[in-house]
Design a binder for these strands. Structure first.
Lengths: 300, 300
DNA sequence: TCAACGGTATTTTATAATTTAAGACTTAAT
DNA sequence: ATTAAGTCTTAAATTATAAAATACCGTTGA
């Protein structure tokens, strides 16, 4: 019923390492120096030093910290595996929802999810609170959470919003100076697309990576925290979605490559109108595919 | 270390009310009926019934629940005032940040904020987690939170994003059928703007409400949960910001009214290009004002 | 006979106690 | 005088736990 002493253990082990390399009789640096180096507070360093003193590995007396003996292998504490970060947790969550086609309206059990994802339930609560802002989950009337999930409506709205953001990015792209790296980046992407088109029969799986790179390149020109955050969620959802909907992957990717190339060519030709209409077309296809694959799975 | 029994107390009191009106000898409805009516689980109803039985206000025996006596005023339990909802909490938070010009980088103390806002610290945590998605606050390296806040950069990005969203809304507006309520709405708004322009000298304070109504009307045509959520945050920030930055309010509002009218006229004339350029102009002014008022406060 | 009801047991949620960690301030040593 | 160590207060993170929700099952009575 308190926080874990993982940090203490970690610092203790790091100090053991230090004692090993320094050897007996050596003196350890100041508390502050150690704290800064190990990126923890002095309190933790002092706790670890006290523990080392108790275990007679060092003798600690004021600012005098003398190594008594070289620690042996049994002295190291095994530090529990760190819980997943919020980003990892988010990925896990999307992964779970899409992999198991979790239907809309499913009640989300925080405790169970926390167990499954091996995360503190408290982090789950936070993740759900954050996702509720995007309308992906919602709070139930008398406590608990519920998946709103990937309904058709959600997919439509997601795609529409993606369109707004990408067209905006595209417009901004044309205002960039000639020496901006984006232009070279587009040349490179064109080459990569052409290369993949050649070998689409075998390597069609590689498209997913290229797709992400392409959209990231375009969206990346917009330096706006709101756009960036949304883009993150959008690409996460598209990414996971396509990962579990692979029926007509080859054909779909072949088509997408030529659509990408149309956009790239328009960009390289500095033809804004052409680029925008090509992008509109591409995103319309993406929307259509998303909806079709959802329906074919009797998803929702 | 458990949830509060506020719900139990509330149900207990409601049952007391019922006993009062029914009078002695009367029978209470079934557990399920009571639970459905009071929007709680049967467990709570049963706990409350047990308590009433223990206090000899009713006699409870299986499905027989007889009122023994009319409760007197001392029987009612005083139920603690409900903590603020997440929406209220959010408003309180913005209010606090802008009212006190809380500078960027300020560490946010969850416990202290929870005390100040009289909310469970757990709700604060949730709010911060959600706001971090909009880049308003961020998690610090070793625990805790920090206000990113209303830096100039933030304001710029906010305005830019607002522009993207509103122009998008405006474009969608022109696709709406002739019998859509928006057109009448615009007529009404025009009248209200003209009326306020007449009396701007005295009533310039009323503009803030009208401004919100105008922007809400335009943004409201977009039925997209992502847009709506963002719009909500954006208007919240603009709202609070203007509430605490009143220097040149009269002039600013006078100018804004005529800009609004330009947009409205273009909309009513079904002139999309004119509407868009008028809106671009208006939002550019809003951005300029936002930045100026921030600078004049040596804000940040 | 069967639908509604109450009893019981099992989750699940929300909260607060608890412990670790952080940080501010004070004192001591070089 | 400057830097480090000691002391103490406060905050954050996590778990233990009571409260509430819910699922299940036997019972009652129309």
């Amino acid at each position: 019923m308190a926080r874990t002493d993982e940090r203490l253990k970690s610092v203790y082990n790091q100090l053991l390492d230090r004692c090993s390399t320094l050897g007996p009789e050596a003196h350890l640096p100041s508390e502050l120096a150690l704290a800064t180096e190990m990126q923890v507070s002095r309190t933790v360093v002092r706790s670890a030093l006290r523990k080392l003193d108790e275990n007679s590995i060092i003798q600690w007396n004021g600012r005098n910290k003398t190594v008594l003996r070289v620690p042996d292998s049994g002295d190291w504490l095994d530090v529990a595996s760190a819980p997943p970060t919020l980003d990892q947790l988010e990925s896990n969550f999307f992964d779970w929802v899409l992999r198991f086609d979790v239907p809309a309206g499913t009640p989300l059990n925080v405790t169970k999810l926390a167990r499954d994802f091996e995360a503190p339930s408290h982090s789950l609560q936070e993740l759900l609170a954050a996702l509720s802002r995007f309308g992906l989950v919602k709070r139930r009337a008398r406590g608990g959470w519920e998946l709103v999930g990937f309904t058709e409506e959600f997919a439509l709205e997601l795609s529409d919003f993606r369109l707004v953001l990408e067209l905006n990015a595209l417009k901004q792209l044309f205002n960039l100076p000639q020496d901006h790296p984006i232009w070279q980046n587009m040349q490179d992407l064109k080459a990569q697309h052409l290369a993949l088109a050649e070998e689409i029969e075998e390597k069609y799986h590689d498209f997913s990576r290229l797709d992400e790179a392409f959209h990231d390149a375009i969206s990346g020109v917009v330096k706006n925290r709101f756009v960036i955050e949304f883009q993150r969620v959008i690409s996460l959802i598209f990414h996971y979605h396509y990962q579990w909907r692979k029926e007509t992957e080859k054909d779909r990717n072949r088509a997408a490559i030529s659509e990408h190339l149309a956009i790239i060519d328009a960009i390289l030709a500095r033809d804004e109108d052409a680029a925008i209409s090509a992008a509109e077309e591409h995103l319309a296809t993406a929307k259509k595919t998303l909806l079709e694959s959802m329906r074919s799975h009797e998803f929702v």
